[in-house]
Design a protein around this nucleic acid. Structure first.
Lengths: 369, 369
DNA sequence: TTGAAAGCGCTAACAC
DNA sequence: GTGTTAGCGCTTTCAA
């Protein structure tokens, strides 16, 4: 039976290098205030022994973990059929890695998981949390707030806690929607409909608001409510909504769908009814979900958001906030407004009204509008 | 400035309950050998104080972490446009959660990340690793092996290490491919082509082998090489391959594509050339990637694999192996064959030849074949 | 059954 | 500059 390969400790390195544990510790943690010749000896010993610091021991004394939890609360399948999630993670991972932090992934579905996650965060196992709260009625944010861990949200939360709106990073959903609808208007379309997303999510609400903004400024009949159909971000919901819309307003000549999946459903129904896209009805989506948006028939004109960048910024914000907080000696204070002063050097393109960082969108023109 | 909310310690609970730390520790860890009345007192104190054990302190003495690393090595964008990855994670997460383990996500791209990951694993921060190694020439598996951490691979590795083929969980790619091609043959098609995946991945190789199996047993001209076109799992690759195929063999009447993305590209070209699917050319994909496979035109007949289940099994295998190993007192031994005796109670549907667990596939019939 | 005490490997005062 | 020392919060012998 193989022996447990007990890893070398600081002690071992110290002995080998002929110095004290403290000196080794100093070298390992940056090496300030150590004579270069000694430092060199220590480094060699570290290399020879293949020493890797024991994170548990370190955390025990420093109270830092160099780990961040990513909480994805998604009872629905949607997140899992959507590369959105993966791209966010990629962005987060890159940023955390660059700062030597680990990513602890917490996926939840249902009540039990919520308390589990809350317990975990309250247990002080991580230095902060990145939370994707997709629904307005989600109890998780409250629980997380109570856990007293610095947190940054992905997507604008639909509520504000005792200390105001929490830190978040979001896409400029409203602005993106405006761009989409203006594009449609610029094409000469006058009866522009909107198929909404699930309105218990701020992204859906914001896109609807953006649509209304433009319709209101349009000369004739701004914001005819019969042109708005509520849906749920799914292809099936998109089909349903499109049918309803066509029955109600057969004269519709353009559709802004709350996301690409919805647009896809709409496209299907349009085809089925013998309507040509974009000749008869122009369609614009949202997300630029690849490869779907590219491969649809016709390829989808849509509003792109930089999802990976969103992830990066969330991590950056948290890390900065956490640092601030830790310097203050109050690890449980949460990343305060101090950390929210915007990305600054980080990303000049991002706007920062209040505690949120809003990322810009781009209209991607393909064949559908 | 808010005070650092120092979390209650064992000591605090002990004081409150009027017992020793040792007793609290016993209760918290199962409570064996503690008088029920005392245990009850302790539990109440725990609840009142909101005590959560400090994992770092615990790990320091137990050398266990109740944490598993998931390593996803994917330099290409493919993983991120594919829900595959998300579904695996979901399965893994569920299983780990059920066993009170945390999921540490390690995403890598490029050499630097490899050494980083290897260091991390070697540092003994986690009890095991789940690794997705998608390419035959990937150096990561070797590094990970050297790190001496129990590991289970996702997808059959294309190599064997010193101790034989490592533990893995895979889809029955070969069997699934056979089913697909037989289905095509059953439709009366006789000139069945195959567009392969990236052949540096075992999944692509296995699917090709499955195709060949059936072609070989077919009466006339089994395995005409002009019917096989190499590609790379992408839609663009699928288009290219389909064009080449059509130029070479205009008489082709069926295509088995290595995955749905590839099938999608093929579908496009077929449409573009005015060929009807499935009347002129029947098409079968692989993966049942949703919503793509459902939403394509026509909806895709394809081979479904249970991706989430794959993730679950990987975690289950690792956890079992790790437990075995830990019982043996040799944490660095790696999950040996002992852990590989198959899912047994776990999943009766899975086959287990050697150290691998192979999950079955299902043919999903839609309109394209 | 319960408690006392010895560390796990590390950092951070503090002294030299 | 460098070493000594006192814990961080927990589990785990070992006695009682």
């Amino acid at each position: 039976m193989p022996e447990a390969v007990s890893r070398p400790t600081l002690e071992a390195v110290a002995t080998r290098a002929g110095v004290s544990r403290a000196t080794v510790s100093r070298v390992v943690n940056g090496g300030y205030g150590v004579r270069e010749s000694l430092a060199e000896r220590v480094r060699r010993a570290v290399a020879e022994l293949g020493y890797v610091p024991n994170q548990a021991a370190r955390s025990l004394v420093t109270k830092r973990h160099d780990a961040v939890a990513v909480v994805i609360a998604e009872p629905e399948a949607r997140v899992f059929t959507d590369p959105f999630f993966a791209l966010q993670l990629r962005g987060i991972s890159k940023e955390l890695t660059a700062h030597d932090n680990q990513l602890v992934l917490l996926l939840t579905e249902g009540r039990d998981d919520h308390t589990r996650v809350a317990r975990y965060l309250a247990g002080g196992h991580v230095d902060g949390a990145l939370v994707f709260s997709l629904h307005l009625d989600d109890p998780l944010p409250g629980l997380i707030h109570d856990a007293g861990v610095p947190t940054v949200f992905g997507g604008r939360p639909g509520w504000r806690d005792r200390t105001g709106t929490p830190l978040y990073v979001d896409t400029d959903n409203r602005g993106g929607a405006r761009t989409a609808v203006r594009h449609l208007a610029g094409l000469g379309r006058t009866r522009i409909a909107h198929i909404t997303g699930a309105l218990d999510q701020t992204s859906a609400v914001d896109r609807l608001d953006g649509y209304r903004d433009v319709m209101a400024e349009t000369a004739d009949g701004g914001g005819d409510p019969s042109l708005v159909v509520e849906s749920d971000f799914t292809p099936a919901g998109g089909e349903r909504a499109m049918r309803e819309l066509l029955d109600r307003r057969p004269d519709v000549d353009a559709v802004f769908a709350a996301n690409d999946l919805t647009a896809l459903g709409a496209l299907r129904v349009l085809r089925e009814r013998g309507l040509r896209v974009p000749e008869d009805v122009a369609v614009v989506g949202f997300d630029d979900m690849l490869p779907l948006a590219e491969q649809s028939d016709p390829p989808l004109t849509t509003v792109r958001q930089d999802i990976e960048q969103m992830g990066r910024l969330m991590a950056r914000l948290l890390l900065r906030g956490a640092t601030t907080v830790l310097r203050d000696g109050s690890a449980a204070a949460g990343a305060g407004p101090k950390g929210a002063s915007g990305p600054g050097d980080a990303d000049p393109a991002a706007r920062t009204p209040g505690p949120g960082v809003i990322l810009p969108t781009t209209l991607i023109r393909r064949a559908s509008a």
